[in-house]
Every structure is written in C-alpha cells, then in structure tokens.
Design a protein around this nucleic acid. Structure first.
Length: 505
RNA sequence: GGUGGCGUGGCCGAGCGGUUAGGCAGAGGCCUGCAAAGCCUCGUACGGCGGUUCGAAUCCGCCCGCCACCUCCA
C-alpha cells in the first residue's frame, strides 16, 4: 500500500505540511510537558492529548514512534519568559501556598509529577518513551550554556548569562516576532514592572542561566550558584534523546513565543542545523465561554473532574473527559462546557453497552454471515483519514459514533462472525482514538457487577419484578423512583430488566 | 500597535468549487403497564458587501465581529 500522507499544520511554515520523518516511517518527536507545581488542568491536557493523537495516528499507519515528553521540575520564575527572568519562583510560591504539606520544593515537585502521570494514564494518554526531568539534566544544560558562551553567542553579566539574539538572525522565524522595538514596547506597554538587567545588550536577549545563591533549587555552575533559564532544558533534553534534528515538536500555543522561539535559537546556534522540522501548537481552551486562567480561578484540574463524588470530585468518566477534549479540533478555539461533557458521557455509556453486547455475541457465537465488517472497515478508514488530515478529531468521532450506532441497531442479532468484526473494529478505533476502553484494567467493563450498590439494586429490582408481575405498578414505580434517587437508571426489555448508573454530569 | 487563528442551522461541529456530514436538543411514530433505553422519520444553515465562475459555505478583495500570543499559563 502506498505510504499514507500524515498532514499537520506547521507553525513554522504557516501551512499544513506532510509530516516527513528524517528516517522514513519513524517519527521522533518532543512535546513540552508542564511545570509540576500543581495538578495539571484540562487545558494542559488538551495539548498533551494532541501529542498523544500524533503518536497514535503515526502508529496507525505503521510508523515507529519515539516520543519524548518532559517534566519541568525546576522552579522557574513566574515572569521568566521575559528575558530578564524576574518575578517569583513558581515552585517556591506553590510551596508557600501548600503550607505544611511538603517539606521542600523537591517533595512538592515529586508529588505533582506523580499526580501528572496518574492523570495522564487515566486519560488513556500514550506513555512517552522517555519522560525526562529538567533536574536530572542539569549537567547537560550547564554544558549547553557554556558551549553557547564559548561560541560567543552567550554573554555573562552580574545577574546571569544571556543569549545574544543578535547572533541568531533567524530569531523570530517561528512566531513572527521580529522587531526588537516591538518586543520592548510590547512589554513596556503592558505596564511591566520587571526589573531589567541594565547589562543586557538587547531587549530580546533571554536568560540561559540565572545567578541566585538564595534560590530554593540551585546548582553549581561555572557562573556560581544558580539555576538554568527556562528554555534551555527542552533544547537539551530533546537533543539528548532524539538527536540534533527532530521531526516534530509540539506544545501549547502560548509556547510559540518565547519558549519555542528561544529553543530554536539555542539549539540551532549550538548545532548549526535546523532543530525541529515541524512545529505543532494546540490552541488554548476556554471554559463556559471564558478564558481559563489561574488568576480568575475558573479552571478545572483533571483530577477534580474524574475523582469520584465520594472523594470530592465530580465522578466524570475519564473516557468522557477525553472524548470531550477530542470533540474539537486541536487548532481551533475550544469551549469546554459541562453540556459537552454530558453529551460525551452519554456516548461513552452507549459505547460500553455496545461492548457488552459484542462480548456477549462473541460468547454466543451464533451462526450467520458477517454483515457489519465491511461497513465498519469503511468507517475506520474514514476515521483514520480524518486523523491524517491535521487530526480532524470531530470527523473521526463522527465516524466512530456512526459505527457504534450501527452496532447498537443490530442489537442482539449479532452473529459470531459479525461480533468478531465488531471487536476488531472497536480495538482499532481504540488504538486510534483511545476512547473505547480504559487503559487501566477493569474500570468500566465490570462496572455494573463490581458496583458497591449492586446487591442492593438487584434486591430492589427483584422486588419490583414481583410487583410488576402481580400488577402492583404503584409499588413498581415507587421502587424505580427510589433507584432513580440512588442514581440508578432502570431499563426494562422483553428479556428482562437491566440497570446502570446514570450519567452524573 | 505587532503576529497568528476563527466566524456554518436552537447548540456543538465536519466541509477544501457542483452529490444528505455527524452529534446534542426538539417534534412525530414504534416498543413499554407507564417510563427509561433502543429503533424509525423530520432540519437546507453557512457574518456583511462586492468580485471570479455555467455554478461558491468552499476561490479573491474589502468590511464587521470574536479569540489567542507579544505578562503568568498547555
């Protein structure tokens, strides 16, 4: 079969380009991870989902994938994107906020990076092949800064080491931010109060190393005690695990400038070669029509959405959350709403029903032709083509829902052969989109039987069945109302009554 | 001010020059003791004004509106 073309919008070229790995059929890419000073929120995860989908789509067309996604566990400064890196340390700030909960910033970083990984798995995100931590690559960062200094591209001042943007004429090629004046004005126009380093040669110059012997996380360097600039870690870790030239680099749209612009400047100055060929950026999401930001507090962590209600969460199925995130294409503005979450929770519930039917049909293995395979193949192909076209998740989801409805419509009439096809289709769709089965075992499939309420519910249903059989419908409806209050949905059919938990969004 | 993105039916959301996207909500019907679930049927929209074309949601121009980045943040 001809090699399918995987097209993604490339911020660098401003157009949708085919992804062309340096080594054919082997995609090597890097996705910027979060700074672990709090629980990751749904906005973080929108961009991690994009990276996950890139990996899944590449794998779906038979490519090998080497995927690296970092954890930033160095306490960078709240305003360190400004060249001078003023402001307050993010981790130190978090530590103060968390009070006695953590003994120090290291513990805090460890706790939240563990939490990140837990949430990552809950959302069915593919594990990166390497998940490097900034603190574990300090030598390499120091060496990179020293190398830049040797080349005359970086210079030292009282306060730190800076990258001389003047030495890198291509600076601005990713973001379009070319003019030094504009940059300086932009900052000033926003009423910046950051203390500028008077020794800085150019307002565009950014910090590679900050001298600070009082910083909570500090390392020894040729420039004394201090800590690295924010941008250098990604250049260094990407290069370390993927080579000097990588196929693709992804992140949130806010990273275009300055983070990725600076990464390019550093990496390309060091190697003299183009750093990443393809740059992919995920648009920020909004919540109920408003910008999600920490300052206004209208943001949701994955954790609080998926934790059970007993644990103070909202009990939302991780798959429903994932599907909601997929319901908008990564490059378009996305308005996260609870309406959407509810819709998608229903879809997930329907998928679960279909899975149960298919499993039952596989067991029964009834005679008969495969009368769904061909149509399902077509629907998978449609979903795959959609994903290959700049991760068109809404279209892929539409094809998936059509397939689910097809299987649902066939109902209990599935032949063994049809069930086989259905199972294969579900597995393939799951590999591609990750919305069919949870990665962690047994969370959904056994839900009904493992439910702590099961015994009580069954008892009530038995009583209701008796009431119905003897025509005491008042009592039957009373029981149904009771179950409804317990969050249980009752479904009568010709071959018995089934139940499930209601979607609780 | 600079840079980039977006405006589709009640809502969400595909569409890349000419055949019904799909979903949610809603309406009617089937099923049901009644519900729920499920199934069937029903929607002709494309910010505005010009232009190109036999034909435009789809291409071009202008205008209007929304959003993001250029502070923290994916």
């Amino acid at each position: 079969m001809p090699t399918p073309s995987f097209r993604l919008y490339n911020t660098l070229t401003g157009q949708t380009d085919p992804v062309e790995p340096a080594e054919p059929q082997h995609l090597r890419f890097y996705a910027c991870g979060p700074t672990v000073y709090s629980y990751a929120h749904i906005g973080n995860f929108r961009s991690f989902v994009t990276a996950d989908l890139i990996a899944r789509t590449a794998e779906a067309i038979g490519w090998d994938v080497t995927f690296v996604s970092n954890i930033t566990d160095v306490g960078h400064l709240t305003e360190d994107d400004v060249a001078d890196a003023g402001g307050e340390d993010k981790m130190a700030k978090a530590l103060r906020k968390e009070g006695q909960r953590f003994a120090n910033v290291w513990d805090l970083a460890r706790y939240f990076s563990d939490a990140l990984i837990t949430d990552w798995r809950a959302l069915n995100l593919r594990e990166p092949d390497v998940r490097p931590r900034a603190t574990e690559h300090m030598q390499q960062q120091i060496q990179a800064v020293a190398a830049l200094q040797e080349k005359g591209i970086a210079y030292e001042t009282e306060k730190g080491v800076y990258f001389a943007v003047e030495q890198f004429p291509a600076y601005g090629k990713l973001s379009g931010n070319q003019a030094a004046e504009a940059l300086a004005e932009g900052a000033a126009g926003q009423g910046r109060t950051t203390v500028q380093d008077p020794e800085k040669r150019d307002p565009r110059d950014f910090a590679l190393w900050k001298k600070d012997a009082k910083h909570l996380m500090q390392w020894h360097s040729p420039w004394g005690w201090g800590f690295p600039g924010w941008h250098i870690e990604c250049s260094v870790m990407a290069t370390e695990y993927l080579g000097e030239q990588i196929d693709l680099h992804a992140g949130g749209e806010d990273l275009i400038f300055p983070h990725h612009e600076c990464e390019i400047a550093q990496a390309e100055s060091l190697t003299g070669k183009p750093f990443a060929k393809h740059w992919v950026h995920t648009r920020f999401l909004q919540v109920e029509g408003e910008k999600m930001s920490k300052s206004t507090g209208n943001f949701f962590t994955v954790r609080e959405l998926i934790a059970s209600e007993d644990e103070g969460g909202r009990g939302i199925s991780p798959l429903a959350l994932r599907m909601t995130l997929l319901s908008g294409q990564y490059r378009k503005p996305f308005n996260f709403t609870f309406d959407k979450l509810r819709d998608n929770a229903h879809h997930i519930q329907r998928i679960e029903t279909v899975i149960q039917r298919v499993d039952a049909a596989l067991q029964a293995n009834a005679e008969g032709d495969d009368f769904v395979g061909e149509r399902l193949d077509g629907l998978y192909e449609r979903a795959l083509q959609a994903m290959l076209d700049d991760l068109n998740t809404p279209e892929a989801l539409a094809a998936t829902i059509e397939g689910v409805k097809l299987l649902q419509g066939v109902g209990d009439e599935l032949s063994g052969a049809s069930a086989q096809s259905a199972r294969q289709w579900l597995d393939k769709i799951n590999d591609l989109l990750g919305i069919i089965r949870p990665q962690t075992e047994g969370e959904i499939a056994d839900d009904a039987t493992a439910d702590p309420l099961a015994e009580k519910v069954e008892a009530l249903l038995d009583e209701r069945a008796e009431a119905r059989a003897s025509g005491r419908y008042d009592r039957a409806d009373e029981i149904r109302a009771l179950l409804d209050e317990m969050g249980i949905e009752v479904m009568d059919s010709s071959d018995g009554t089934t139940w499930r938990r209601k979607v609780s969004v």
